[in-house]
Design a protein around this nucleic acid. Structure first.
Lengths: 395, 395
DNA sequence: TTCTTTTATTGACGGCAGAAAATAAGGGCT
DNA sequence: AGCCCTTATTTTCTGCCGTCAATAAAAGAA
């Protein structure tokens, strides 16, 4: 707690600086020349921008003596010093809070979680503050300042205003969470939708690095989707975007809590799979783990439920691909535990429903550890720290 | 033909200039102060940027003496002089060519069309050149230079490269149309997908002015969709985007030429509606006009076919709204002749399938005259003339 | 007539980024 | 060992865009 300089800001006076920094952040160690090539700036501009970043400790020269191209002056790559600063990411679900302490490169240093005794904003805030306090103490032990706090909440979140407009799981409406948490913790706070936060993490530190158009699809209790178009995360004019879960794939399908029938989520969400297994097999499956076990044992009804789920997800992804033509779709989420049960159906349904060259889209799966969501929240905090008020996008 | 200075370029040395110009172009006459407010630039910058544009004749001071605010120095609004330059837009369909001569404000001055005797690139090119020649002659009579030619083709078009990658209607593959037409006509040529071109026209001169996120849905022989996200038209990583026509709305629906079942186009495309009317009523409907007439006469099978089409379109639009959260959806296309037959179904299906606040999206219809597509092509030519090599977006 | 109010314009200034050239740092060749 | 070649980095200089602050302009109000 003692070593925190809460007013520390990133020395990004100019768009070029933040562009250069994010390039180095995402693309590992790079020589100045290579940075210049990727950003379209001149080598001179890179040198000038890099110097203050090195002086401030955010970049370091990577004395990596192994990769010698053997001709000409040896290159002197720079990389981000992850240990220069720490960030806290918090994911709030309906029944627990997960918090991580990450470095500037979004690598997780410490992870904690705690049950959520109370869904009232006040109680949640207290729990967040407590976990954040523990992580701040850890950071203090390391002697590294914590420069931001990101909070991810599912539902309709206005990141700019820092307000949770509506969260079904928490039963919140118009809670100014950023302001509340900032006064409680003394840190700069960013609040964002959980799927968008995960998308930011993929864009800066994951499988979306370097892509200007991609989608992240999360499979679990719900089916979510984060979209990056023209290098920026899509937020939606009314706060709603990426609602792949309520895309209809079969108007004759099972009813969905949204009031329609045959939504992706009504077929491929955890609850939907469980219900279907119960209906077709009559078995008493209490949770997803049992359902997966049943399917792995080869019970036809269970396998079928997962196959249908895979087909629905594949169709949903194909819809995204047909509409947006992303370069890549990254499938992630807790539901990937059952990946082997529906991977094939996802691919087949996608291939069948993708139109023309939309099928060239690269569909990959990425496992998501349980701290993944919290890490996404940390990524939004890092992003907001770096570009404070700059809205440029990279190629 | 005589008065064409083919090398004339737009004096947009700086991003600020092109930003200011497009603001004035889209938002009618504006005072310099108002322009400064909208662009976020300082009034001084606007004054300096405007001067050369006035000298070059692209802007004029609007000596409009009626709207006096009666206090302070009288405002001196500037507007674009549409008559300063002309552009040609050409739409190539499977069986005819439509060409328009527009001014800089994309107002149509002359429209022509001609049948397409031949679908080979050579023959199409000759027809395009002939129509363009006629329009060039008209422009010559007016003494106004033509500064660009836009060509709109359905299918997979690489605008940057000026190549038609694949056009099913013309049976073309990898035709470098921009290059060919440029050498034939001597004009700078832009080739783009027809729906994207129409979207550009709406973005700059239509119902999309000032919006950073909206969609254009075209209803006709096919169902198409152009998307604007973050102020830019979505092109798709593999050339495919906005393929709303092949979004599945009912996996048990009628087969589509794409190989799937129940695509929007397989239910709401002109051919699909005709087929369904024939099947349900047994009537011999030869074309869309007859089908509309039948429905207007109250024939149940015909009315039903249109109702189904409206439902499919509404679902498709809801899918777009759920995924992207646009501010507005603009429905257009030749199919709007039957607008009264399915407008209600579109609205109902959209309202039912839109999730949460995605339903707040403003859905409007805009009639599309038969020169609409060609005007879109002209809009792309205007756009490319103005921003030559600038990729900034507006708010 | 003189003041007030709003808009437009001018000139000085600061700062970003690019170009060109200089400098640095190897390794290979003779 | 000394020279040359290649590549990386830095320095210096310069152009130029856009802001700041002061000024002009054109009414109506007092």
């Amino acid at each position: 707690m003692s070593s925190i300089r809460s007013a520390e800001t990133f020395p990004a006076n100019t768009p070029a600086v933040s562009q250069i920094f994010t390039t180095v952040l995402s693309h590992g160690p790079l020589t100045r020349l290579e940075v210049a090539r990727r950003t379209g700036l001149s080598p001179a501009a890179v040198t000038k921008a890099v110097r203050p970043l090195i002086e401030a400790g955010y970049l370091v020269e990577d004395a990596d003596e192994q990769a010698r191209p053997a001709l000409g002056r040896p290159a002197n790559p720079v990389r981000v010093d992850g240990g220069r600063a720490l960030f806290i990411g918090v994911k709030v679900t309906g029944d627990e809070i997960i918090a991580v302490l990450t470095d500037l490169c979004c690598r997780i240093r410490v992870a904690r979680h705690a049950p959520l005794p109370d869904r009232e904003p006040k109680g949640v805030l207290a729990s967040v503050a407590e976990l954040a306090g523990e992580l701040l103490a850890e950071a203090g032990d390391l002697g590294v300042p914590v420069l931001g706090l990101g909070i991810a909440v599912s539902g309709d979140v206005d990141r700019g205003a820092g307000v949770v407009r509506y969260s079904p799981f928490l039963a919140w409406r118009d809670v100014p969470l950023a302001e509340l948490a900032a006064t409680t913790t003394g840190l700069p706070v960013i609040v964002d939708n959980d799927v968008r936060a995960l998308t930011v993490a993929e864009q800066w530190f994951g499988a979306g690095v370097g892509l200007s158009d991609f989608a992240v699809v999360t499979v679990g209790a719900g089916i979510g989707c984060g979209l990056v178009v023209h290098g920026r995360v899509v937020a939606g004019a009314h706060g709603v975007a990426g609602e792949i879960g309520h895309v209809t794939v079969d108007p004759a399908g099972p009813p969905c809590h949204c009031g329609n029938r045959g939504c992706v989520e009504a077929i491929a969400g955890d609850a939907a799979i469980l219900r279907r297994i119960r209906e077709t097999t009559g078995a008493e499956v209490a949770d997803t783990a049992q359902a997966v076990a049943l399917a792995h044992r080869g019970v036809a009804g269970a396998r079928d439920a997962y196959a249908r789920a895979g087909e629905a997800i594949g169709r949903g992804i194909a819809t995204v691909a047909n509409l947006l033509g992303p370069e890549r779709v990254i499938i992630s989420g807790e539901g990937l535990a059952a990946h082997d049960l529906f991977a094939e159906q996802i691919r087949d349904a996608f291939a069948a429903a993708a139109f023309g060259s939309a099928a060239e889209c690269d569909v990959q799966t990425r496992p998501l550890p349980f701290e993944g969501w919290a890490r996404g929240a940390a990524a939004t905090a890092i992003q907001s720290f770096i570009r404070a008020d700059d809205q440029r996008q990279r190629r």
